[in-house]
């Protein structure tokens, strides 16, 4: 069953046609990746879903409901967690405060503590840094915190925008393993990546986006061996 469906989405930045009739689908329990080069419209797609950018036309269906033009704070509450590009953590708040912000809408303190335990389970490193200010951590730790913070919302759909950006290969591998683990436990994931090789390896399905258009779609393994994809993104 499809958890998220974008139908013919057109998004503009002023006069620039950033998304040209994008149609993608994410089924429950899947990892779907959206790959493409710089400026292809990957982040814009995520921003359009979360409501930071409004599409000019088209429809976004989430759980069968139309969420087109829903403001971002409402989509966040409805179970779509967006981990924005570039690790946007709260630099001057402690790691613990950062995590608590993820459960902003939760009042039950016990539930917050429980969710935090789960985050520590995935990212033991975060627990060691609990009282440090977010901004003083390394890039990899910040990315872990950004994902951990999103997990505090206990989302149905986790949208990750370039989690591998600017990280050492070994950290990237760790993070992708955790994404896989999260998915194994039932979380649906929409992963935007430039690092096509790694993304396609863990994804069930993938879409290739080029200058705002979806030019190819298929199973992760298929795309991984596809000649065109190999030439353009994996060479």
């Amino acid at each position: 069953m499809s958890l998220l469906r974008l139908e013919d989405i057109n998004t503009f930045y002023g006069g620039i046609h950033a998304l040209k009739g994008v149609t993608i689908e994410v089924n429950e329990g899947e990892i779907v990746t959206l790959i493409g080069s710089n400026g292809a419209g990957k982040s814009t797609t995520l921003k359009t879903i979360s409501g930071q950018v409004k599409p000019k036309s088209g429809k976004i269906l989430y759980n069968g409901q139309d969420i087109t033009n829903t403001p971002p704070h409402i989509t966040a509450l409805s179970g779509i967690a967006h981990v924005p590009e570039g690790r946007r953590i709260f630099p001057r708040l402690t790691v613990k405060e950062n995590l608590e912000m993820g459960a902003f809408s939760v009042k039950d303190k016990k539930l917050i503590a429980e969710r935090m335990e789960r985050v520590f389970h995935y990212f033991p490193r975060i627990k060691e840094r609990l009282h440090q200010k977010g901004g003083t951590m390394s890039g990899g730790e910040q990315q872990m915190l950004a994902i951990g913070r999103a997990l505090m919302m206990q989302p149905k759909l986790l949208m990750l925008d370039e989690p591998s950006m600017g990280l050492a290969p070994i950290i990237v591998e760790q993070i992708f393993e955790i994404i896989k683990e999260l998915n194994d436990e039932g979380m649906t994931i929409l992963l935007v990546e430039q690092n096509a090789f790694q993304a396609l390896q863990i994804a069930h399905r993938g879409y290739v986006i080029q200058t705002g258009e979806i030019v190819m779609a298929g199973l992760g393994q298929e795309l991984l061996v596809n000649e065109q994809v190999r030439e353009a993104y994996l060479a």
Binding site: A81, M101, G102
Partner: peptide, 24 residues
């Protein structure tokens, strides 16, 4: 309070604050 934490989150990063469910 909740609003106090929201203020700090907005101060630190508006986009991330929105993604946490905060009405900017």
């Amino acid at each position: 309070s909740k609003i106090g934490r929201a203020w700090k989150a907005v101060r630190e990063n508006e986009i991330a604050a929105q993604a946490m469910g905060i009405h900017l």
